[in-house]
Design a protein around this nucleic acid. Structure first.
Length: 260
DNA sequence: CGTTCAACCTGGGCGC
DNA sequence: TGCGCCCAGGTTGAAC
């Protein structure tokens, strides 16, 4: 089934205009002229548009980058506009309020170099349970920061790491190498369930509303959060107040009673 | 092997 | 209103 905004096959660039000041644009925009998009795909948290030149446009949105179909929230932070030959195709706009994201045009070799197994682990939604456990279980690190290590397993973000450990009933400060098989099994199954559900609900739009889907609409997964952004609110299981702590300079939320 | 810190940026929210 | 903080779904590299 074709996705609603599938760019594949015959869609062709007619022109491309990066906005005036795009320091992270590491290639000349004209090199994209009249290239066909043969496939769209995701590797971990990156979005790739594979071109018929056997290169790929690689977007890494980081905290605030959005790939939008149609109108951006404002013209101010439009970083790149992709126009297509077929007039009925809407523009694709890369919009990034904070400007932390990057866009690269990479060859197959460069993709292997930057996104290959030495840099990124298997995708969280494609890995087997035993490979998932083996990726982490020898580490002496705390489990929550470990889940964010993209070189072990790719695709788990800060918000979802907290949600996963709540569902798995594992304390975020436990060391990886002190968790048993059934705990790893619960973490694995929770990661699959939560990431799939979050994708289905089109992500979590929090506080300042930064995250949007491709149509610039907010996601719905924030309504499913059990712990993230719920500091001092009661645990849905035991009514204990949810705690916020900081691990590796990132917020972690958890229930100190439910998570052992 | 692991942790901590700073840096990259903008802007919303809060206390004063 | 304004100012000065703190915070933010991420990643990288340096220092220890």
């Amino acid at each position: 089934m074709r996705r609603r905004h599938d760019l594949s096959s015959r869609t062709r660039w007619t022109s491309l205009s990066p906005s005036a000041d795009v320091p992270f644009l590491a290639f000349d925009a004209p090199t994209l002229d009249r290239k066909n998009v043969v496939r769209t795909r995701r590797i971990g948290k990156r979005v790739l548009l594979d071109l018929d030149s056997s290169e790929s446009l690689v977007f890494q949105p980081k905290m605030a980058g959005l790939l939008l179909v149609g109108q951006p929230p404002s013209e101010a932070h439009v970083r790149m506009r992709l126009f297509f030959e077929c007039g009925s195709e809407p523009e694709v706009i890369y919009w990034d309020r904070r400007g932390l994201g990057t866009i690269h045009l990479w060859s197959l070799e460069q993709i292997e170099e930057h996104l290959g197994p030495s840099k990124l682990g298997p995708d969280a939604l494609a890995i087997s349970e035993s490979d998932f456990r083996l990726a982490f279980c020898e580490l002496k690190r705390e489990v929550k920061p470990a889940l964010l290590d993209q070189s072990k397993v790719a695709g788990i973000g800060n918000l979802y790491a907290s949600e996963i450990l709540y569902t798995a009933k594992v304390h975020p400060e436990r060391r990886c190498n002190e968790l048993n098989r059934s705990q790893w099994s619960r973490i694995y199954r929770a990661s699959i369930d939560i990431l799939q559900e979050a994708i289905l609900r089109e992500g979590s739009t929090l506080g300042d509303g930064t995250y949007r889907n491709a149509q610039n609409n907010p996601g719905e997964y924030q309504h499913q959060h059990k712990v993230y952004d719920r500091a001092d609110d009661p645990c849905f299981r035991c009514k204990t107040s949810i705690l916020r702590i900081v691990q590796s300079q990132r917020s972690t939320f958890f229930c100190p009673r439910c998570q052992k």
